[in-house]
């Protein structure tokens, strides 16, 4: 999977968040985050429709004891 983040994408998200960026920031940010985005994107994650963030709490409580 191509997980490369582009400066254009960073600039668009920053603008939507109303956070001003310095002129060289978008390229730096794109380089900095690409490894995490690419690695997460490469993971073959199949999330069932019913999975939500709070599902974590259920699994943690279930895994508490052996």
């Amino acid at each position: 999977m191509n997980g490369k983040v582009t400066p254009e994408r960073v600039a668009a998200i920053a603008a939507a968040a109303r956070v001003p960026l310095r002129s060289d920031a978008a390229a730096r940010i794109a380089n900095a985050v690409t490894p995490a985005v690419a690695r997460f994107g490469d993971e073959p994650i199949a999330l069932a429709l019913e999975i939500e963030p709070a599902t974590y709490v259920v699994i943690a409580r279930g895994g508490a004891k052996r």
């Binding site: 968040a17 940010i29 900095a32 985050v33 985005v37 994650i45 999330l47 599902t55 699994i59 943690a60």
Partner: peptide
């Protein structure tokens, strides 16, 4: 710089990372 890095992720990437927490623990 590190705080600005958080401007690079899409909402879907963030939410998928949150939703995967339970399955990853399992």
């Amino acid at each position: 710089n590190r705080l600005e890095n958080g401007l690079a992720y899409s909402a879907i990437e963030y939410l998928e990372a949150l939703r995967w927490r339970g399955p990853a623990l399992a």
